[in-house]
Design a protein around this nucleic acid. Structure first.
Ligand SMILES: [Mn+2]
Ligand SMILES: [Mn+2]
Ligand SMILES: [Mn+2]
Ligand SMILES: [Mn+2]
Lengths: 237, 237
DNA sequence: TTGAAAAGTTAGCCGAGACTAACTATATTA
DNA sequence: TAATATAGTTAGTCTCGGCTAACTTTTCAA
């Protein structure tokens, strides 16, 4: 009988429920083979998932039988399917994303976004539709807006890039002067380097960056050759 | 040295990179302990993740050392962080979702949404801001719109619910007449039930639904008692 | 009715990613 | 400088969710 459904379901198991719901609607019945095909997994994986779902009281299942959702299972399946639909609708109908891509992204995102966000998102879609009825073609304006500006690239630097990233000696160019911040290594290596003058706050002048040849630096008048692994461990500013 | 980064990174490893980027920016340096605290995992989990990332050439790491991102790692970390920021910004600044919830959802969704969707989403945020400058307070209008309608619930039935779900005998109420569609069981059980008159298309009248007592049905004049497991296997319409 | 073909299950393997407990290296401080 | 506290690693375990190969059950058609 229906077991406890304390812990939240994994994305994978939610997908099984969603697949069962869809198959039931489309073909009238959900069988193991159909689920495997829908999700692109091996038939044996389905068997195991069904046992797991049955243990949680979410499907009626027994070996060689067809699969139906219990009331609990139906509730979850509908919630997931609905989230998927809403997110996908936003991607396609508002953002104008290509259907296949939207489908894939929405199916995954559906497991990550809870009621608070989904409700708002649905409200927003309604708002957009409502605006349209009132003569304001928001989506059309957005499309137009997109045309009039150089398509932003996913790689465009943003706040993230503006944050200073830790620089190692490897990032320095020949001729550049840098100050040693710290050495990313154990004390034995650190003391070995200290003997060469490589201590915190010392000024380093990069002589050559070692392609080809060794990475050469100048520290207080003496030239030092460093190996690549070493170069990555020396933090500078 | 930098290994091949053929296969796409898992969400978990992307989170490690993101955490390292953030720690480097906030504290100047990323150490194992800080990563563990940020992500809420055990220190030993961090050790393993760092080894894995180092193998892929995404971080400079060696035991007991501090951690820095390689150029490849930095690129990925920034991409993930930026997706996170854009999605979160949409949730908070457009949809008006509470910060903590938006943060959590965005961090997860960031791994699921690729450039095609993210680019559009960022464009949309810009569009909204742009509209605002031109005197159209879209967000304000949306907030107003939300107030003027009964808050939609995540459980509201939608297309998903409108699809007919498979009904079992368990869903029937006392006195109800239903037609048997199929029996979710192997042939031996099916023939046993067939002997009782339970064959496809036969009409079943529900007598009592068995709380307490057995589930009783009337088939062609004869009363039959069914156990709960059986009731779940009989598909009707 | 019987013998494939198809559907489904079992058994065993694997990698990812978490955990705890115990150990080791490093840092701190008296 | 030695003792202790903290940080980090190692070893071993677990669950999840894939997979293949081999077997069994059910279906279907001759
Ligand atoms: Mn889906
Ligand atoms: Mn999904
Ligand atoms: Mn994030
Ligand atoms: Mn994340």
């Amino acid at each position: 009988m229906a077991d406890n459904d304390t812990s939240k379901l994994s994305a994978a198991l939610e997908d099984y429920l969603e697949a069962i719901l869809n198959l039931s609607a489309e073909r009238g019945v959900a069988r193991s083979r159909g689920i495997a095909d829908t999700l692109g997994v091996a038939r044996s994986s389905v068997t195991r998932a069904l046992r797991s779902l049955a243990d949680r009281g979410l499907v009626n299942y027994e070996p060689y039988g067809i699969v139906t959702l219990t009331d609990d299972g139906l509730r979850i399946a509908e919630t997931v399917a609905r989230r998927h639909e809403i997110i996908q609708s936003f991607f396609v109908n508002v953002l104008g994303v290509e259907k296949d891509i939207a489908q894939k992204g929405a199916c995954e995102a559906a497991h990550a976004l809870g009621p608070a966000i989904i409700d708002r998102l649905m409200g927003f879609i309604e708002f957009v539709n409502d605006s349209h009825k009132n003569g304001d073609d928001l989506v059309g304006r957005f499309r137009q807006f997109c045309k009039n500006r150089p398509a932003a690239k996913d790689k465009t630097p943003s706040k993230a890039t503006r944050r200073k990233a830790t620089k190692t000696l490897a990032h320095a160019k020949p001729g550049q002067k840098v100050r040693l911040t710290s050495i990313n290594a154990g004390q034995k290596l650190r003391s070995r380097l200290a003997a060469l003058g490589l201590v915190p706050n010392v000024e380093i002048t990069v002589v050559s960056t070692g392609r080809p040849g060794p990475f050469m630096i100048n520290v207080k008048g003496s030239k030092i050759a460093l190996g690549k692994p070493m170069v990555d461990k020396i933090i500078v500013e």
